[in-house]
Structure formats: structure tokens, C-alpha cells
Design a protein around this nucleic acid. Structure first.
Lengths: 153, 153
DNA sequence: TAAAAATCTACTTAATCGATAGAAATAAAA
DNA sequence: TTTTATTTCTATCGATTAAGTAGATTTTTA
């Protein structure tokens, strides 16, 4: 299970992706619209900024905005920033590999073999899904919903 | 990242799968051979028993053994017992579904759509990999290793 | 009845989660 | 230059979980 921080981060980023190139967005607006505790959101946005996903402007007229195009930010990246590596065990992590201490032979570890497949499957999905893709998915779902509604009416 | 409890559980189960139908195995033997703190392992085996994966006999000549054939116990099941649901967010869990409070429309939640795919991919792998499969994988890896060794010599 | 096992209950220590508080730095506008 | 609006930094909090330990109890067999 991903933690709330990560969920909030994704919510905020999807929001900012929708508002891309419409100027800086206030933390307070984001917090209100997405129902996120403001002070908590501050920390989250800051770490996203420190990791190059967001940019900000201080002072009047300031706020946060995406550091690059929504197509250039993917969900895997965001999860790794807030949650750490995707891999279920560190010995199969591509971004934060570390040997499992107590494990004798890495090559012959059954757990490792299974978890490698899991990691790869997760990474395949998360690293290939950009914020733009997420927006698109939402749009598609809306289309579908309105079609059904139309049909019912 | 899965926790140590889960890792220990899988190690123990793989061990017991290898010794399937050779009678009960002592906690102390398991703890020694797999390098797991004995007292900690006790708790783990007990919860595995309480969840129907293991059986035990008390007293002299007692110990733990698999409750069913290694082909009938899969990794997903074990992880769910010790770690909880596979799903990254509760609203896509098949085994422990719950609505995300703050989420307005489940159907239109982008995070949910992505995480649904992730959950399905994980479940696909973990629920289709039995303890017997893991043993097989290990055997294959051993074969491969010895072949390479032979080639070098 | 003694020994050998699993089982149960409770505790510990450290870390992490989900926040909150308040002051400091910065930028723009008046 | 001062005020105002904003982000940024540092610290703290209470609750929960992780990883393990301790010790007494129950059950079984020989």
C-alpha cells in the first residue's frame, strides 16, 4: 500500500498537469481543491521540487508549477521520490540495489526470482505512465460515462 | 518493500516445501538453518498455521509442516497473510476492498486506474507462483549454474 | 512423571506515518 | 522602503508499526 504522502503528491501533480502553463498555483488552492492538509502538502510539494519535478516562485503571484511537460513526468518517478524503490526486495531494485545481508546466494534465491518479475511488471506500468497519460485516461473514462448516461436518458 | 516477517515466512515455507512429507520440522532447526531469530519465527509460523498454511504437532517429535501440497500454496497467499492486500491502494483490492474516503468519484480517479493495472500485474504473478514453482525455479538456476561451471572447467 | 515441543501474553526499542506550529526567507507591489 | 503574500525551513507530536525478546503455559510422547 502506498502512503498518503504519495497519494497526495499524485493528486497534486495531476492537478498541476491539468493547469500546465497557466502560471503558478497556490499551495492553499491546491490544498483546498484536493482536500489535502495544507501544512502537510507544503512538505510534499517541497520534496517534489527538490527532486526536480516541480518548480516554484516565492512571494506575491507565486506558487508551484510543473518543472516540465506532463508527458515527461511519470508515475514511477513520483512514487520513487516519496516511497522509495518500487522493488519488493532491495536486491532486485534497479534504482537502489543492495544485497540482502542474510541471503547466501543471490543467484539461487527463489524469493528474489519471483520478486524480480514483480518489480519488472510494476516498473513496466508505472514508468510508462506519464501524468499526461493519466489525464487522458480520466478523459476517456469521462467520455464513456457520459455516453452511458446519454444512452440511459 | 516487503517486511522481514514476510521474507522469513517465505524462506521457512520454501524450506518446508523441500521437506514436504518428511514429517514435522522443529522451529529451532528452521531458525538455525535459515538464520531467523527463533522467537520471532515462532510468531510467524503460528500465524501461518492460524491461516491454514501450516499444521503442527506439539510435544516430543512435534514441529511444523505444510498443511497441503507445495503446489497448492502460492506466494500471493503468503504475502497477503503477513503483509495484507497486494493492492497499492485499498480501492482496487480484490481481497480487502475499501473506498478511499477523500476520493469523490472512484470511476474517474486516475490514480485508481493506474494502480488497478499494477495490482493485477502483481496478482497475476504472485497468485500463479506456488511453492513448488519456486523450488523448480531454484533447481533450474542450479542446473544452469553447474552447466556454466562445467563449461569453464 | 519428565522432557520436549508448540502456544500464548506481554513487553521493548526504534522507526515511520500523518500531521501541526511557528519562524524565516523571498519577491512583488504599494 | 515598507507591507503583503508567498514559499521554505526546523522542530515537534501522538499514534502506529517493525523487529524482536522474555517468560510462563499447554500439549504430547516416551
Amino acid at each position: 500500500m502506498i502512503n498518503k504522502k504519495t497519494k497526495y503528491a499524485l493528486k497534486a501533480l495531476i492537478y498541476l498537469a491539468r493547469e500546465y502553463e497557466k502560471g503558478p498555483i497556490l499551495i492553499s488552492v491546491l490544498a483546498r481543491d484536493e482536500n489535502i492538509p495544507k501544512k502537510f502538502l507544503e512538505l510534499i510539494l517541497l520534496t517534489l521540487k527538490n527532486n526536480g519535478v516541480l518548480q516554484s516562485r516565492m512571494g506575491k503571484g507565486g506558487g508551484y508549477f510543473l518543472a516540465c511537460h506532463p508527458r515527461a513526468i511519470n508515475v514511477g518517478q513520483v512514487i520513487r521520490i516519496l516511497e522509495g524503490p518500487l522493488a519488493p526486495v532491495q536486491c532486485v531494485s534497479e534504482t537502489a540495489y543492495a544485497r540482502c545481508e542474510e541471503c547466501e546466494s543471490e543467484e539461487l534465491c527463489g524469493i528474489r526470482m519471483v520478486m524480480k518479475d514483480v518489480r519488472d511488471a510494476m516498473a513496466e506500468i508505472l514508468d510508462s505512465t506519464s501524468l499526461a497519460d493519466v489525464l487522458e485516461k480520466i478523459e476517456n473514462a469521462k467520455q464513456k460515462e457520459s455516453k452511458i448516461l446519454n444512452f440511459v436518458i
